[in-house]
């Protein structure tokens, strides 16, 4: 396979892993005001992602960095075209990060309420906006051959874009609720399980509508009809989505969490495969599409970066798995009593 094609899939993989890992943090933050009834519930929820969210967020930095390194033209055009939504996401992430650290520093209801609101917004908004942004990318973005954007930010909120946003929010809610089912005990755990089931019931029709809408709004399906073997990805996706319900019903919450994670990865790949070879298609003229072949870095950079990524990303995955393993048990009162706990 060509270097540029390898990089295209690595690019997709990094985004998928970002959604897989930080996705449950976004989900937890989104359902935080709903299932976190008491202050203790809330603390359990925050501490369930406490040791992990920071490392998860670096997948975003890496996805962004790799876009910059391997496809500089995509990095330049994508982020300047989507200036306002990206800024909103970044501000939301700033608030989420600070809120997690600062909420527990002062015991005062107003102080905590402010940070609680920011935790919700800082999780819900990125989930929604990433969904909206990717759905719009699937449709194509109005930019010309010079990388000049001719669109209107509000037009990103078109029906298909919003559908993508809803899909992401629901995926992350299910994924986050599944993690809470692992990390919580008692009432909170029951509420998390109930939330996972309810959100799943909403997720299934939204996913189906999204797949159908993609037929009308995008060219994503073209690659699938050219290479029918790729339908396996869609089938696996459906299987993963259904297995979430299966494992939740069996109270096998770890497996349910793996299943929701797999669903997120496969959903991302559904889009990434459909886009190939474009990373950032233009809705004005397909000739202006930025693709793996016309927007990539030099072969030397691609080779060096491939070496770096192939050596270091597996190492990162190993120590992150160790971190997850270290913090896999339900949150106890002793955990909450730690000075450093959120």
């Amino acid at each position: 396979m060509e270097l540029q094609s390898i990089w295209f899939f690595l690019w997709g993989l990094l985004w998928a892993v970002f959604f897989l890992t930080d996705g449950f943090d976004f989900g937890i933050g989104t359902i935080y005001p709903v299932i976190g009834k008491t202050d203790k519930d809330k603390r359990v929820m925050l501490n369930s992602m406490g040791p992990l969210w920071d490392g998860n967020e670096v997948w975003l930095i890496t996805a962004g960095g790799v876009t910059f390194a391997a496809f500089p033209k995509v990095y330049a055009t994508m982020f300047s075209s989507l200036y306002t939504p990206l800024m909103l996401i970044l501000f939301a992430l700033i608030f989420r990060g600070v809120a997690l650290h600062f909420r527990g520093k002062i015991e005062h209801p107003v102080w905590k309420n402010v940070w609680d609101t920011l935790i919700f917004l800082g999780s819900f908004l990125p989930a929604l906006l990433f969904g909206v942004a990717f759905a719009n990318i699937f449709q194509g973005i109005p930019f010309d051959g010079e990388g000049l954007y001719h669109g209107n930010t509000l037009k990103l909120l078109n029906p298909y874009g919003l559908l993508g946003g809803a899909l992401f929010v629901l995926l992350f809610i299910v994924h986050g609720a599944n993690w809470m089912a692992i990390k919580a005990t008692g009432d909170l755990k029951e509420r998390a399980v109930a939330m996972s089931s309810k959100a799943w019931l909403a997720l299934v029709p939204v996913a189906v509508i999204f797949l159908v809408a993609s037929w009308f709004a995008t060219d994503l399906w073209n690659n699938y009809f050219t290479y029918p073997i790729l339908f396996l990805v869609v089938l696996l996706n459906v299987a993963a989505l259904l297995s979430i319900r299966f494992f939740t019903a069996k109270q096998a919450y770890f497996k349910a969490w793996f299943a929701s994670g797999l669903t997120i990865v496969l959903c991302t790949f559904y889009g990434v495969i459909g886009l190939f070879p474009a990373l950032f298609p233009s809705s004005l003229n397909p000739e202006w599409n930025l693709t793996a072949f016309n927007a990539s870095s030099s072969p030397l950079t691609l080779k060096i970066m491939l070496g770096v990524v192939l050596v270091f990303i597996p190492i990162v995955i190993c120590y992150q798995i160790w971190a997850y393993h270290l913090f896999k048990d339900p949150i106890t009162d002793e955990d909450l009593g730690l000075d450093e706990a959120y």
């Binding site: 910059f68 391997a70 500089p72 330049a76 030099s298 950079t301 770096v308």
Partner: peptide
Amino acid sequence: GDIFGSLLAI
């Protein structure tokens, strides 16, 4: 980006 982007990604 060919050079600067790589350094940030690394």
